[in-house]
Design a binder for these strands. Sequence first.
RNA 1: GCCGCAGUAGCUCAGGGGUAGAGCAGCGCAUUCGUAAUGCGCGGGUCGGGGGUUCAAUUCCCUCCUGCGGCACCA
Length: 675
Amino acid sequence: MRGRTAHAIARLTANARPAPSAFICVVRAFAVFSASPRGRKACPRIRLETTTMDAKPGPDLERMRHSCSHVLAAAVLKLFPDAKLGVGPATDTGFYYDIQTTVPLTTEDLPKIEAEMRKIRERKLPLVRSEVPVKDAVAFMEKTGQSFKVELLELLATRGSTAAKGLDDPNLVDAGAGGVSSVSFYTLGDFTDLCRGPHVEHTGQVGAFKLTKLAGAYWRGDSRNPQLTRVYGTCWANEQDLKAYLHRVEEAEKRDHRKLGAAMGLFHLQEEAPGTVFWHPKGWTLFRTIERYMRTRLEADGYVEVKTPQLVDRVFWEKSGHWANYRDAMFVAKPGKEGEEEDRLYAIKPMNCPGAVQIFRQGQRSYRELPLRLAEFGACHRYEPSGALHGIMRVRAFTQDDAHIFCTEDQVPAESRKFCDLLRVIYKDFGFADLLVKFSDRPELRAGSDETWDKAEAALEAGSKAAGLETIRNPGEGAFYGPKLEFVLRDAIGRDWQCGTLQVDFVLPERLDASFIGEDGAKHRPVMLHRAILGSFERFIGILIENYAGRLPTWLAPIQARTVPIADRHAEFAREVARRLMASELPQTDGGIRVDVDDSTERMQKKIRNAQLEQIPYMLVIGDKEQAEGRVAVRLRSGKDLGSMAIEDVIARIKAEVGTRTDIVEPAAETAKTT
RNA sequence: GCCGCAGUAGCUCAGGGGUAGAGCAGCGCAUUCGUAAUGCGCGGGUCGGGGGUUCAAUUCCCUCCUGCGGCACCA
């Protein structure tokens, strides 16, 4: 968000419509749910809302959506009179209501509920607010059997807030010390709900809506509580906006890395290996390109690379604390003949840090070696809950761009700063400019004393200050061994992805007894910084695919150019051109330009179509003319025709794009169909 | 893990108590073509696995697996 003008944001968020020339920009701070699959944790952020000056006057969207959730609840109660209601707030695109019914709701009920909702809208029922003493409110909800509402009322009476923890419900948070003595009710026909409001005046003002999905949701977000059925809907000012939204959802689906990744031939997943990726040649080329790039950056920044074992005795994990905290999520192995397995139980590493400590512990370390930056492209396995798996974004086997920096407490600020600088350069190279940083402090379940945590949090605070970061507090979300900074980047369609992390750890060096000899000749404990920039390669590649909608910049594209001979007699020259491109040495890579030849018997038009669909940056067409002149006709995937070019000029251009990691933008390059 | 939904050819999808069909892709032949689909032909499926009901199951029921959308989780 930073560094963007309000106008740019308006354009980003204006549903692909041109940005209005005049608009009002309202800045509001409130809790929004992050779209990051890292979790839909509440992530407070400044949000810009834009409204056009010439926008039609009408009820505020959020208010309308909130009212729409009441309409939903009223409709459900009409159809299922014994339904118990949970909470029903507005969301970024609509609303939901959590409902418990004796017979579970199914998707077949949705059209019926929708029809009932329309009836309510047509009747233009007023939404009437009333102030009610808590005692009376409880009596009313008890009488109507709304036990969840009674629970909410009790929370309001004692705490003045219904928030489960922290900032988790933007619509119900009204945090204030102490309880309240009265609450507000809203009545809509014969349906009365506990609600803070505000609402539209009557149900006729509820715009175009559609119920979109059903899902289970734990009461008050706690898996120990009963699960209610959450009915999701979307709601817009008018039919046109609703249609535009549904269209946008469809467009976003086309970016889905699972679909694109398969279509681009990058990888596949299959039943027998849930949550693990089969990388195909093109996908692995992309993976290695990123790995090579990271290695170059890390080496330049004073890291040394290591590799630690996959399988380590459980005793080791007990020592590190992982066994106690994460045993359920670890894969274990007992080798040996069936019935005669070895006594020792091994676990596949879920993290790289204990391994890194072992390397640090070998021999006697001196303060002169610090800071020691041990990088590892470590492959970790975690038995993630089945419901969490998602394409290659959330998997059970993944490769981290991990590193552990062993240093003194005094070195933490400088190392933090150095890390943040590196992180920013790398994100920029991948095309991400927007960055948000969260500061996660001590969780409830943790290792180490409070004094240690005080020290660690203070050190990280100093580090983030040294790096010049503005951070957002994320209470209780630190790792069990230390507090962390979390780096969130924003993609081309405004979604947030948490990727990087920097964690200060005083605990593991202690537990695993790491030490160095200081200037004073005495033994000291090092501080350990855990850090990652991409997070996991698998997830980051998924993010890249979605961010670029498959159209990876030339430096990352698995195939950068394809020669397209028009007829068989041009094939030999096409192969010759490809050989020349392959022989050209690209900057910062091991090889030449990644090029192939389409010498199939298809017509040229079909070959171009195929290259387009594969999002290949350069199509080098070769016919009689080109062959005679020793040149190629260059077409970009944007549809732009660069005309006839000398082969060395094509090579120079691709080299330039790879060298700067930025594609050359052609001004008139927008003729291509979007597919 | 929990709630809801889904699984039919490599892909997208149709069908339905009497053992399956389209388009694309693939293969073969013809075509040798100037910037997003040349024509003709051919092959391809234990209808996710297991169990049950039935004269008969891909279709109905149960169960398991996997995936999808959420919830919870995410060192």
